[in-house]
């Protein structure tokens, strides 16, 4: 196992071009991820930011071994996602934007299953589940069917599911979307904590620019499947400062300018609309 938690090299993925049988009609493929390269250092929280459909989740899915790249490679601690699939899977876990559970089973039954398939024992799972869910204010509802939970509560259980297996590489795809401010803070503290306690490395996507700025050591911007820029939030702000004082530039402005959805355009819409 080498020491670079995540190495993504020249990764590309298109959808819809292929066909199963030669007689099927060939459609124009959608290029979801286009020649993406980046590396994450040990213990780093690395943000992947971009507009809807820019390819963030597709990158996360390829790293999670759920999608095969068309080109390029991904290595997790030196293990190749295609050649060493099982080794990679042991090292990572993921929070997906939609909290996906067996809705009729209780939170605990779900967590038992999703952690046992990572090789954990029942007693340890029960203890840790209770611990994590208590911190997220759900400790007393652990035996209730997931069906009874609100979306945000389900999202909390999804966060618990990922942290339960103590992954060394954590893939967080919009982990705090739909959470109230207090729960959001609690999850963000969690993320920092696992980084500190378990020496975990984190890849985070989010649409919350404050969150990105507060949590991420470095941030990459995806536009139409390509990384257009990468750096610390300070570096990104100075990139677009153009003479303006850096402190006055918000991450929202950085987002709008880098993704090409500039303020000017918005103003134009206002004027003409």
């Amino acid at each position: 196992m080498n020491s670079i938690p995540l190495e993504v090299s020249e990764l590309s993925k298109s959808f819809g071009g292929g066909r199963m049988f030669p007689w099927q009609e060939k459609k124009e493929p959608i290029k979801a991820v286009d020649n993406v390269s980046f590396q994450i250092k040990r213990g780093e929280i690395y943000g992947l930011i971009g507009a809807n459909g820019s390819g963030k989740s597709t990158v996360v899915r390829m790293i999670s071994t759920l999608l095969t790249p068309d080109a390029g490679s991904v290595r997790v601690f030196g293990f190749d996602i295609e050649r060493d699939e099982l080794e990679v899977r042991r090292l990572l876990n993921r929070v997906s934007p939609d909290p996906s559970f067996f809705k009729n089973m209780s939170a605990l039954e779900n967590l038992l299953f999703f952690a046992r398939i990572y090789g954990m024992g029942s007693d340890e799972i029960k203890r840790k589940s209770f611990e994590i869910l208590s911190r997220l204010d759900l400790g007393d509802r652990i035996r209730e069917p997931m069906l009874h939970f609100s979306r945000g509560q389900q999202q909390k259980v999804a966060v618990a599911r990922a942290f339960l297996t103590s992954p060394v590489m954590m893939l967080l795809d919009e982990p705090t979307t739909g959470l109230d401010p207090a729960s959001k803070l609690e999850v963000q503290n969690f993320i920092r904590e696992v980084r500190a306690d378990h020496d975990a490395t984190v890849l985070l996507t989010t649409h919350d620019m404050d969150e990105a700025e507060r949590l991420c050591d470095r941030i990459a911007f995806l536009v139409n499947g390509r990384i257009v820029t990468e750096g610390t939030s300070l570096e990104l702000r100075s990139q677009i400062a153009n003479g303006r004082p850096v402190e006055e530039i918000s991450m929202e402005t950085v987002f709008l300018e880098i993704t090409g959805k500039t303020i000017e355009e918005d103003e134009e819409v206002l004027v003409h609309g």
Binding site: T65, L66, L86, R89, S100, F101, F114, I117, Y118, G119
Partner: peptide, 18 residues
């Protein structure tokens, strides 16, 4: 139907044991 498919398939379980 449940939406759990990705989380089950990405776990480190050889498919034969699943």
């Amino acid at each position: 139907w449940e939406g759990t498919i990705e989380h089950t398939l990405m776990a480190p379980v050889p498919r034969s044991l699943h």
